[in-house]
Design a protein around this nucleic acid. Structure first.
Length: 418
RNA sequence: GUGGGCUUAGUUCAGUUGGUUAGAACGCCAGGUUGUGGCCCUGGAGGUCAUCGGUUCGAAUCCGAUAGCCCACCCCA
């Protein structure tokens, strides 16, 4: 095989595409209950959009972005996440002038150059939502509750857990970072090599290191919760209170630290146990300073995204995609019957029936097998006998019932659901 | 980017200490009397044993490189 999809990319084929369509449709439907509308932004953007919003020193920007120069030597990047583009579009369209509040959802491919493994691809798909213009912590809880409802109720996933944290704001977070860094430097000897590096670039990430030694150290480390300023503490309490009212189960985990620089205050992750190491199903949080940072006015923001590959993978552990198809299969015997069936097929399609037939002149048995294999329930048989009587045999493959009806009446006698 | 495992038919896998025409199951195709699917039976198609190079009289089997897949780390959806 000389042709191969690029590493970390994959084709999604039927019947799996049915599952994807189902998830996408349900997400659109569910999110619209909360007032979200779809936004579509380009996959390709100026590189600077991402380096500025996500943060120069983040892993995503430093090591994982697909970056290249176009034909005019402009530096462009394939989007590694959705928020930056939506923020740009929000600012660029000047929506803030017309309506302060905007709720968007988007869905599509994202790109990160990483080593592929289960549930992690270089092209992967996210469904995300972004809300602009609502500073209230109630909104945080609403979005989180919506995601929770989507996973548990709409998609019927049995084991998703929600972990939530507050990172503090631009006032209180630096204080915590100082204290935390001070603490780490006292225990540096016990940290792994990675974490020693992290101390310089992104000390908070030491919190979710899996090394035994580092875990030991961080259990006694100062917690962000102790450093939250009055406002942040009150707001976080209100998020949790509202989640309680909604009946959304959560676990406060001070170690939830996100990989993108723009997050502050509320952050959260939904995880599953069904996927091995890639257990994050969705994540998000508040990004109040981002719109301003990107050149807009001072509009608060909140957003989150879920990984479609991972969601679909979890669903596949619960059930296999259905292969049965609705519709009709017309079996013909002989050239005259085939010609007759062609007319019939277009009449039926005009009435909204899905119709397939075989043009190869195969045996009856062979065509029956084909219809059966396609998972089609109703078969129309048109042979010499039927032609003479101007009838077709209609067979229900499931119940094995068969009856003859006049050709002219087929279209009207079959319910559109068939 | 780091470490480990793997790569034989469409799929999941066998393949003995290197030795004739590389196997199974499932799937696929066709038959099993005149026009009826699934089950069963019979037959058939399908493989440059990932690629390239090396060792050897002889390589799917041993060695090396490359690519890909998988798992873990890293990171995240």
């Amino acid at each position: 095989m000389s042709l191969h999809v690029l590493r970390g990319m994959r084709d999604i084929l039927p019947p799996e595409t049915h599952l994807w369509q189902e998830v996408e449709a349900k997400a659109r439907q569910f999110f619209s209950l909360y007032g979200y509308e779809e936004i579509r932004t380009p996959i390709l953007e100026e590189m600077g959009l991402f380096t500025r919003s996500i943060g120069e020193a983040t892993n995503v920007v430093e090591k994982e972005m697909y970056v290249f120069q176009d034909r005019k030597e402009k530096w462009v990047a394939l989007r590694p996440e959705g928020t930056a583009s939506v923020v740009r579009a929000y600012i660029e369209s000047n929506r803030v002038q017309q309506e302060m509040v905007a709720r968007y959802y988007y869905l599509g491919p994202m790109y990160r150059y990483e080593r592929p493994q289960l549930g992690r691809y270089r092209q992967f798909h996210q469904i995300g939502v972004e809300v602009f213009g609502i500073a209230s912590p109630r909104l945080d809880a609403e979005v989180i509750n919506m995601m929770d409802g989507f996973f548990r109720k709409k998609m019927e996933l049995p084991d998703v857990t929600l972990e939530i944290n507050s990172l503090g704001c631009t006032l209180c977070r630096p204080k915590f970072q100082n204290a935390f860094l001070h603490f780490l430097s006292q225990h540096e000897a016990a940290l792994c090599g990675d974490c020693k590096r992290r101390m310089e670039k992104n000390p908070l990430r030491v919190l979710d290191c899996k090394e035994e030694g580092c875990q030991q150290v961080t259990t006694t480390a100062p917690s962000i919760q102790e450093f939250l300023c009055e406002v942040c503490e009150r707001d976080f309490d209100q998020v949790l209170e509202t989640l309680g009212v909604f009946g959304t189960a959560y676990r406060v985990n001070p170690k939830i630290v996100r990989g993108l620089d723009y997050y502050l205050k509320t952050t959260f992750e939904f995880t599953t146990t069904a996927l091995g190491a890639q257990n994050a199903l969705a994540g998000g949080g508040r990004y109040d300073g981002l719109v301003r940072l990107m050149g807009g006015s001072n509009v608060p923001g909140f957003g989150c995204a879920l990984g479609l590959e991972r969601l679909v993978e979890v669903i596949k552990t619960l059930r296999t995609p259905s292969t049965t198809r609705c519709g009709l299969f017309i079996i013909t015997l002989g050239e005259k019957a085939l010609i007759e069936a062609l007319t019939l097929s277009s009449q039926l399609r005009a009435k909204g029936h899905a119709v397939q037939m075989d043009y190869e002149g195969k045996s009856l048995k062979s065509q029956m097998r084909l219809a059966d294999k396609l998972g089609i329930r109703h078969v129309l048989i048109l042979g010499d006998d039927e032609l003479k009587k101007k009838q077709v045999a209609v067979r229900d493959m499931l119940t094995q019932e068969q009856m003859e009806i006049p050709i002219g009446e087929v279209a009207s006698r079959l319910a559109t659901s068939v």
